[in-house]
Design a protein around this nucleic acid. Structure first.
Lengths: 149, 149
DNA sequence: CATTATCCCTACTTATTAAGTAGAGAAAGG
DNA sequence: CCTTTCTCTACTTAATAAGTAGGGATAATG
């Protein structure tokens, strides 16, 4: 389970947009999400090219989500910044049966990340994990996003 | 789901040892598992220091498992080569609820890899995945290692 | 139409991690 | 002792991630 800084930043940026009902400046996103200013531009550009967000230039410009927050899964964002996951191929015949195991892990991971949307994350109570309770709640797409750790 | 070459090599080496009832030379492991010769030494040393295998020097030397194959989980091997997984901490408050999600993914992954042993992998039918069938079978520790991809 | 705020784009640099290599030392056995 | 095999530390090289730079393009405003 490895998440690059870039991906974490991208998720933070998307959450910031999801939480706002109007366009948000890159500057503002960088500050609130603690993303290095230029790097933030860089990432937003990538998200826009992937079609996840829209943008407008000039004064009154900014970024906003291309679709409602409850229709954007975490996996949608992660796919953009992490790229396609490389298929793990065994080096030797003896290790071939491991392929099946990697596959199962990947599938489970994808299933979860495809279910949880930006809206789900925003709906989660902040800081409730302090006392071990649930953080994410019910998915607006049907999944349960919390419980049973 | 990222697996380094080092980890894949280590798993291949461990499977090679699990499949043999006597000590195996580093040389032989390197050849059969297609591991660069010196790198193989390097990895075997690490596995020995972690207590997963034993060794003997000189002619008639070699490596063998420190415990029965059914008592060595894949996670035991992966932990050695990948080191402790870094805790993912959110950069901003808005991203805090994601922590819970990373945690769930990690826990699921660990649960699976702790259940499946070297013995399970060896018992799996090789090449059955060619026709989409199961590869891993029942775990000698109770887990089911195949099905439902 | 000049000015300013904002996004747009390519390319570059730097830092970190992974992958692999080298060389000499130390035990076991004949 | 002489060969084989593991043991150890350290080094080099390759790949990826993280972050930076410098301008260009567009939109609003007075």
């Amino acid at each position: 389970m490895r998440i690059s800084a870039r991906t974490q930043y991208a998720l933070g940026a998307m959450l910031a947009l999801a939480a706002s009902d109007r366009p948000v400046h890159a500057e503002r996103i960088a500050v609130t999400q603690e993303i290095p200013r230029r790097f933030c531009d860089n990432i937003l550009l990538q998200l826009r090219r992937a079609g996840l967000i829209h943008s407008q230039r000039g004064p009154d410009g900014g970024y906003w989500l291309a679709r409602p927050a409850k229709e954007i899964a975490l996996a949608d964002v992660i796919r953009v910044t992490e790229g396609a996951e490389p298929v793990i191929r065994p080096f030797s015949p003896a290790a071939a049966p491991l392929t099946e195991i990697w596959s199962r892990l990947r599938n489970h991971e994808n299933a979860l990340l495809n279910e949880i949307t930006l809206a789900d994350v925003i709906a989660a109570e902040p800081l409730t994990d302090e006392n071990g309770g649930p953080v994410a709640r019910r998915s607006s797409r049907g999944a349960v996003a919390g419980e049973s750790v």
